[in-house]
């Protein structure tokens, strides 16, 4: 009798144990784990002479729940839009003859390496510029990618793979002062192109697009100023965003230490307003400037008063 009870107890334990094993190691449970990567720095700007080299430490963090196998690669990139997006180019011909590699003792660029969950891998990127390198800009992205896991077998699935990158803007120059030139492509109210009237109670928002017509990327340092009829004056600081050579970028502003659209805080504007943008390339100056005028009128208030007058008149007429 006692033996039978022991047998039942053992069978029960085995069933519970095998159920737990099945649960924890089932493919369905395994796939519901998060996968996360972090990289720093997201941007590296280098101006360097031919024949020189520099190094930079990158930190790659596995913030997910599973251990990963990672691979690294260097891609060329070009702007994908006017907001700073990048389009990766697998053909690295445009990066020739710049040499990229890792200085880590046990890891080279392109090699696979393990990155356990919660761990950070530091890599030391070396950039060597040969004496023969052409003086121009080289735009690259250091990309780290996860290796897909083995087939789950028996399940119709889409496996996921993630890649994360940091961008490099490399200017090769003997003098450190390559030719830089900007063209103000568009400067206007964001919702109106010419002969603009705005409502006095609606803060105006500006659209500023700057084209880089030089040989090297630059940052615009400057501001947009508004001067009104009643000595109203307000200014917006331009965000010093990189504009790559042969590209145009829509510039944002820096308001209260935050990145924001170029919109004033004015609660009320009236009459003719002059808007002026002025900036320098990589320094605060008025090297480039452009202005336009628009008129602020209390349009909504006038319409509301007009509507109210009509209503009152109709009421009065009916009462009479």
């Amino acid at each position: 009798m006692k033996m039978k009870k022991q047998k039942i107890f053992l069978i029960g334990i085995l069933i519970i144990f095998s159920s737990l094993l099945t649960y924890y190691f089932s493919p369905t449970n395994a796939i519901a784990q998060s996968l996360g990567l972090g990289i720093y720095p997201p941007l590296l700007e280098v101006t360097i002479m031919p024949g020189k080299s520099i190094t930079q430490v990158y930190k790659l963090t596995n913030s997910g729940e599973i251990d990963l196998m990672m691979t690294s690669a260097m891609y060329a990139f070009e702007p994908s839009d006017e907001t700073g997006g990048v389009k990766l180019i697998s053909d690295t011909q445009s990066l020739q003859p710049i040499f990229f590699d890792f200085l880590n003792a046990n890891l080279k660029l392109g090699q696979t390496f393990p990155l356990p969950a919660g761990e950070t891998q530091e890599v030391v990127l070396i950039i060597k510029v040969p004496e023969t390198a052409t003086e121009k800009d080289y735009y690259a992205t250091l990309l780290f990618q996860t290796n897909p896991m083995a087939s789950l077998g028996g399940l119709s699935t889409s496996q996921t793979q993630t890649k994360i990158g940091g961008n490099l803007l490399l200017t090769v120059s003997r003098t450190g002062e390559p030719f830089k030139k900007a063209i103000i492509e568009e400067f206007r109210l964001s919702n109106c192109s010419q002969f603009c009237f705005i409502d006095s109670f609606t803060p105006p928002q500006f659209l500023l697009k700057i084209k880089n017509a030089g040989h090297s990327y630059f940052k615009p340092f400057g501001k947009i100023t508004l001067k009104g009829w009643l000595k109203q004056e307000e200014s917006l600081d331009l965000l010093p965003q990189n504009i790559l050579s042969d590209s145009t970028r829509e510039i944002q502003c820096q308001i209260d230490d935050q990145v924001a659209p170029c919109q004033t805080k004015s609660k009320f504007l009236i009459g003719p307003i002059r808007a002026k943008v002025e900036f320098g390339l990589d320094d605060l100056s008025s090297q480039y400037h452009q202005e336009f005028r628009f008129i602020a009128l209390p349009i909504k208030l006038t319409m509301a008063l007009f509507a109210l007058t009509i209503i009152l008149w109709l009421i009065k007429m009916r009462m009479e």
């Binding site: 519901a32 784990q33 990567l37 990289i39 930190k59 789950l152 119709s156 496996q159 996921t160 940091g166």
Partner: peptide, 15 residues
Amino acid sequence: PFSFMIDKIAVDFGS
């Protein structure tokens, strides 16, 4: 740091 996460490593469509 600039980071990106997804909440699963594979999508199971079942049968």
